[in-house]
Design a protein around this nucleic acid. Structure first.
Length: 293
DNA sequence: CACTTGACCTGTCCGC
DNA sequence: TGCGGACAGGTCAAGT
């Protein structure tokens, strides 16, 4: 999916675009993308006003005046696109979305009192939308177990080291992809952070020194922040709440750069498989663990 | 408990 | 041009 920077970018867009609007119509078909009972959805969403938009890990939380919260996970290909009545002009992507949405990937449509619309699109249907009473949000299994927010000050070296210690037998890449260790890292920023730290992704956690783990913590924080500044990464499907692509991929050091030179040493970036995921490394900067040699 | 693998879906790309 | 297989940004269930 969209990883932390992409979800954060969507969150900021929605905060600006939909807070204060009132829902008048919901079209959610009979789809696993929105498993709530229709009666419940109508009762607590129709005539509800959007009061707040927040993010926890890769989950978006849209709070309503009815004391209910819409929880949304975009997974791999989800999009949340707002379409208002205004035209942006000059070939802005939102303008073509006005004419092209809904499309065959649209799972949920929310119509607001000023006739603007919010579309939840999801090609692969892994994502979901759920409506919950506010007090039930923290009871969700994922919310119960998810780890600390990397961009909050409490995500210290000590917290990172103690959390990752539970995964000492697995590879460092699998460990940082584990949402219970820290929230928000996905395949792109795992590879980027490990390259920045000169750690091979297949290295066992127990074979990474505390010094290197501390470097990794800082690099993960830095790459997430940089990507937010660039509006996230558009690898394929991702767009923000106005249909714009993110530009982080132009700055990526290894992700999807196989066959290209390493920015640091000039060696050719390689692609392999670690933790069941496509993995990008510099063969010179990130020396593989002995068992792979 | 820790760890790995396959499943969930649709679409696209690559080799034959 | 068609077909089969691998692969795609994430999590979860089931297996060892």
């Amino acid at each position: 999916m969209p990883e932390l920077p992409e979800v954060e970018t969507v969150k900021r867009g929605l905060e600006r675009l939909i807070v204060g609007k009132t829902i008048v119509v919901i079209d959610h078909g009979s789809d696993k993308s929105f498993p709530n009972d229709h009666t419940q959805v109508d009762a607590f969403m129709i005539n509800a006003t959007i009061t707040k938009v927040t993010r926890r890990a890769k989950v978006l939380l849209i709070e309503l005046s009815t004391e209910y919260t819409i929880m949304i996970h975009l997974k791999m290909t989800g999009q949340l696109v707002f379409v208002g009545s205004e035209r942006f002009g000059a070939g802005h992507p939102n303008d073509s979305l006005v004419d092209n949405l809904p499309d065959k990937s649209t799972r949920v449509t929310i119509v607001f009192n000023d006739d603007s619309k919010l579309f939840f699109n999801d090609q692969r249907r892994f994502g979901w939308v759920k409506l919950l009473p506010n007090h039930m949000v923290k009871e969700e299994p994922f919310m119960q177990k998810v780890g600390p927010e990397p961009l909050h000050p409490e995500f210290s070296d000590e917290v990172f080291l103690s959390r990752i210690a539970r995964r000492k037998g697995t590879t460092i890449k699998a460990a940082i992809l584990d949402q219970t260790v820290l929230a928000g890292i996905g395949n792109i920023y795992a590879d980027e952070g490990l390259w920045m730290s000169k750690i091979h992704p297949a290295t066992r956690v127990k074979d990474v020194s505390n010094k290197k783990l501390k470097e990794l913590r800082q690099n993960l924080v830095d790459v997430l922040q940089l990507s937010i500044d660039k509006g996230g990464s558009t690898n394929k499907n991702y767009v923000d709440a106005e249909g714009n692509k993110g530009s982080y991929m132009e700055f990526a050091k290894v992700f999807r750069r196989e066959g290209k030179p390493c920015n640091r040493c000039g060696a050719t970036i390689e692609k392999s498989r670690v933790a069941g995921r496509g993995t990008h490394t510099c063969p010179d900067c990130q020396s593989p663990p002995k068992k792979l040699l």
